[in-house]
Amino acid sequence: MSELVTGEAVALELRPAKLPSRALAVLIDLAVAVAAYVAVTVALVASTAALDEAAQMAVSIATFLLVLVGGPIAVETLSHGRSLGKLACGLRVVRDDGGPIRFRHALVRGAVGVVEILMTLGIVACIASLVSARGRRLGDVFAGTLVVRERVPAGRTPFMPPPPPWLAGRFSGLDLSAVPDGLWLAVRQYLTRMQQLDPQVGWAMAERLAADVAERTGAPAPHGVPPAAYLAAVMQERQAREARRAFGGPTTPHAAEQPPSSAYSPYSSYSSGSGATAATGPAAPASAAAAPLSHSPAQEAPQDSGNERPATGFVPPA
C-alpha cells in the first residue's frame, strides 16, 4: 500500500492513485469529452453554414476551448475533484493537504493538461507520473493537487479523533486563512497516527504543531488545554468550514456537529490525573489539565461514575 509520509514518519491515510487507474480515468473522460465535442461541432456546422470561413474558424476554436478545456475544468470544480472517469475508477483529485479542490486548482490542471495530455497524446503526463514518487503529472505539481484512491476499505481507514466536548465549537471565530496547507497536512497526519507514537514524542510533536498553528492564527491554546486537544478542536473547525463551503449550510455550526460526550477519545495518553504525569512528558505540568479555562460550567464534560474521569480522557475546566 502506498501512503503519504511526513518527515516525522507519520503516515497519511490518503493513497495516491497508480498510473493504470489514472490512465483509464483519463481515457473515459476524453471519450466523453470528444463525443460531446463532435456532437456540438456537427450542430454548429449545420447552424453556421452561412458564415464565412473566418467566422467558422473562430466558432471552431471557441467550441474546442469550451468543450475540451472548459468542460473538464467545470466538472472537476462542481464535483470537487470527481470527473466521470475518476468516479468510475474510484479516484478523486484533492489538495496536497487532503482537502477538496477549488476552481483555481481545476483551472491550472486543465490548462496544463491541454499541453501534456491533448497536444502530446498523454506522453508527457505518463512520463511525469512515472518519475513522481506520488504519481503526479505536471498539472498536479503546478496546482498543488494529488489524485488519490477514494475507495479504501473501511477497516483500514485511520480514525481522526474529535476534540473533547468542552472544546467543540470553541474556535468558531478563529481566523484560519493564514495557516498554510502544509501545516494542515502535518496536523492531520499527527492526529490520525498519534496513538502509534511514543507518548513523550507525541507530546513534543503536538506542542510544536500547536505553537505553529497558534503563531499563524494569533490565538494560542487556552491555559490548561493539552496541545493534542487544541489541534483536534482547530482541525474540526476547519473541516466544518470546508464542509459548509463545499455543500452549503449555515455560517455557524449546529449542535449536531458537536461530538457526543460519550464518544471514545484517544487523548487519554495525554490526560492528567493518577499515573498520567509520565505519559505527558516532562514539559507538561501535572496540574495543567485541571487549570481553569475561564468559561461557563456548561462546557464541562460529564464525569464517568466508574473512574471519575471524563469520557474524553481530559479533566474539564473547573
Score class of each variant (00 low, 15 high):
R102E: 03
P222E: 01
A23N: 05
V112C: 04
G169H: 02
F142C: 11
R309A: 06
L121K: 07
E207N: 15
T251D: 10
V69I: 14
G98E: 02
L4D: 02
S268H: 15
V40I: 15
A186M: 09
D96A: 10
Q189R: 13
A186D: 11
S172H: 07
V45G: 15
P199F: 05
G71Q: 03
S129C: 13
S296H: 13
G98A: 07
S177P: 05
L146Y: 04
I117S: 02
L118G: 05
G281R: 13
V26M: 12
A17C: 13
M119H: 04
V147A: 08
A246S: 13
L4S: 08
R92H: 03
L176M: 15
G249R: 02
V225G: 03
L14G: 06
V34A: 10
Q200E: 11
I61C: 03
G81A: 04
I73T: 03
T252C: 07
P302V: 12
Y37W: 15
A311H: 14
P16Q: 15
L118M: 14
A39G: 15
A255I: 14
D212A: 14
R22L: 02
L91H: 00
W203D: 04
K86S: 03
Q236I: 06
V75G: 00
A246W: 00
P266D: 11
Y230E: 04
A279T: 15
R104E: 08
L183W: 03
V187A: 14
R193E: 07
A301E: 14
F171L: 06
A263R: 14
V93I: 14
A62M: 07
S294Y: 15
L146F: 07
E300M: 10
A133E: 13
V32Y: 01
Y230Q: 06
D304R: 11
V59C: 03
E308G: 11
G144M: 04
P250I: 08
S172T: 11
I123R: 04
F64A: 15
L209F: 07
V115N: 04
P253W: 12
V114N: 01
A88F: 07
G218L: 08
P285L: 12
P253T: 13
V115W: 04
F64P: 00
R109A: 06
A214T: 11
V234N: 01
A33C: 14
G275L: 08
H105Y: 04
R149Q: 14
M57P: 00
G90T: 06
R309V: 14
L65K: 04
V213K: 02
E257Q: 15
E308T: 12
S269F: 09
V69S: 00
S79Q: 05
P297F: 09
S305M: 10
Q258P: 01
V147G: 02
V40C: 09
T48E: 05
G70R: 05
P100S: 07
F314Q: 13
A25H: 03
G7T: 12
Q239G: 12
A133P: 06
S60D: 06
E3A: 11
F64C: 08
V10C: 09
W166T: 03
P163R: 02
S172Q: 10
A240G: 13
G113L: 00
S2A: 13
F247A: 09
A256G: 14
S269Y: 09
S271E: 08
V187H: 00
L197K: 10
F171P: 00
G122Y: 00
G313T: 07
L185H: 08
G313D: 00
L4K: 09
A128S: 14
P158T: 10
W166P: 01
G182C: 05
L30F: 08
V67Q: 01
G135H: 07
A125K: 04
